[in-house]
């Protein structure tokens, strides 16, 4: 039986060699996730993207569903500072495709933006992704003016 055992052992060694190490990631990306609320309620539909401002040389983003988004490590953000850009279609607005229509037949006017410019075209909201530490973020968008106490 010794013969078979040595055979098995060599097969196991071979397997170990083959499985080896995973592929490297030149950017050192990190998994990122978070929640988005609009005036306290989760943002139903929308998109979020991150524009590099410092250190990083790439951008990423995700679709927001029910107030949450996540980006896998393979597509994630390398450590650095990013500008947060969020957009969403105002419900009930936008081009509509008539029944049996072909692309180009859409009727209506372009969708209105639900998110204020301070969160997209003129965004002054940033996140920092560190070498380590948490990469979960909370984005709280406020459109209504805060109630000020009189007097």
């Amino acid at each position: 039986m010794r013969f078979q055992f040595s055979m098995l052992a060599s097969v196991l060694c071979l397997l170990g060699l083959v499985c080896g190490c995973g592929g490297g990631d030149p950017l050192g990306r990190r998994e990122v996730s978070g929640t988005v609320t609009l005036d306290g309620a989760p943002l139903a539909d929308g998109s979020i993207s991150f524009q590099p401002v410092e250190k990083s040389t790439t951008s990423s983003g995700a679709v927001i569903t029910n107030g949450a988004y996540s980006i896998s490590r393979e597509q994630g953000l390398p450590p650095g500072k990013y500008r947060v850009v969020i957009n969403a279609v105002k419900p009930g607005t936008g081009l509509q495709m008539p029944a049996g229509g072909m692309p180009g037949d859409e009727v209506g006017t372009p969708a209105e933006e639900l998110i204020p410019p301070g969160w997209n075209t003129e965004s002054e909201n940033f996140i920092e992704v560190g070498q380590s530490g948490p990469t979960e973020f909370k984005h709280e968008i406020v459109t209504k003016k805060q109630d000020k106490k009189e007097g």
Partner: peptide
């Protein structure tokens, strides 16, 4: 504007063009 095959969503002309 965005890098190839990015996870950042493409912005399409209308909601009817985007099937997630």
């Amino acid at each position: 504007y965005t890098t190839p095959n990015t996870a950042a969503p493409d912005v399409l002309n209308a909601a009817s063009s985007c099937v997630m």
